[in-house]
Design a protein around this nucleic acid. Structure first.
Length: 280
DNA sequence: AGTACAGCCTGCCTGC
DNA sequence: TGCAGGCAGGCTGTAC
């Protein structure tokens, strides 16, 4: 499941290949239950808006991949649970689960493949964000200067929720999902079920530091290709961070630090993995 | 207002 | 071997 480090890796791989290219056409393989454009726009309308625009820049915000175009619209993609972005030569054999194809100048195609259909593509006004639940509602980027220990402390202190649920809330911090919230809390030595308001200043500082350490390391190792083997970087390769996971998907295995058995528990509708001895 | 949870979706794993 | 059922979890909308 692509979180911040995976989307960052895809962005870095993709940008040099597609910046400056023109979107010559967009096609959607037939699918009666296609939901990839679910924000009140038809495929025809989408195509009309985007065809013959040029990709000026590729960015990431939280888990969103954003293409700035030379028009009034910005192209935004979210990979959901199982989305992949494939850069392919034109007319090469189509992979399974391709939901949208952007035909670029220079005989290249961006293919958006997504078996589970949680992914989404939409256009946003470049000048005025037009939808209520959009990118402007996201919390700070955890690797930005604006994300300080003090800011995190304020967020956590005012919350009655489990700290893991807060870390996964995109309005609190942008870009963390199940993998990196688990790994950050392990590194910080904090139990995922602890209530936000119960955390000490030192614990909050540890969490802040751990988030940044874990994310930087995951980007350096090109993201996590977990057990479902679905994530691929912008070159079609697996990531490497799965070899460095301490707790995520390591239920019943020994903690790499103390040897205790890794446990799981449901938190915020997700499965939290943690070491019962290292995380207090 | 803040929090919790169902729903969307399909491949894969487990147990019978 | 085959099938049913549960699990995985991104985000949104709704209910409390």
């Amino acid at each position: 499941m692509p979180e911040l480090p995976e989307v960052e890796t895809i962005k870095n791989d993709l940008a040099p290949q597609i910046v400056g290219k023109t979107i010559e056409a967009v096609t959607f393989p037939p699918d009666p239950r296609c939901r990839i454009l679910r924000r009140c726009i038809s495929q025809q309308e989408f195509i009309r808006e985007i065809v013959r625009t040029k990709i000026l820049n590729v960015r990431r915000r939280a888990k969103y991949l954003i293409c700035d175009l030379d028009s009034e619209r910005t192209l935004v993609m979210h990979l959901g649970m199982s989305g992949q972005i494939l850069l392919c030569p034109s007319r090469s054999p189509l992979e399974r689960y391709v939901r949208a194809i952007f035909h670029l100048s220079g005989n290249k195609e961006i293919r958006f493949a997504d078996p589970r259909k949680f992914g989404e593509i939409f256009l946003q006004s470049t000048s005025v964000p037009d939808l209520p639940l959009d990118l402007d509602r996201l919390g700070p980027e955890p690797l930005d200067r604006t994300f300080t220990a003090k800011a995190l402390m304020q967020t956590l202190r005012s919350s009655r929720r489990a700290v893991k649920a807060v870390l996964m809330d995109q309005r609190a911090i942008a870009g963390l999902g199940n993998i990196y919230s688990d790994e950050s809390l392990f590194l910080a030595g904090v139990h995922p079920a602890r209530k936000g308001y119960s955390l000490t200043e030192d614990e909050t500082r540890s969490i802040h530091r751990a988030i940044r350490t874990v994310l930087r390391s995951a980007i350096k190792h090109r993201g996590t290709t977990a057990k479902d083997k679905r994530y691929r970087d912008g070159k079609g390769q697996s990531g490497n961070f799965q070899n460095r996971l301490n707790v995520y998907q390591r239920r019943s295995l020994p903690c790499p630090r103390c040897g205790a058995v890794i446990e799981i528990m449901p938190i915020g509708g997700r499965t939290a993995s943690f070491c019962p001895r290292c995380q207090k």
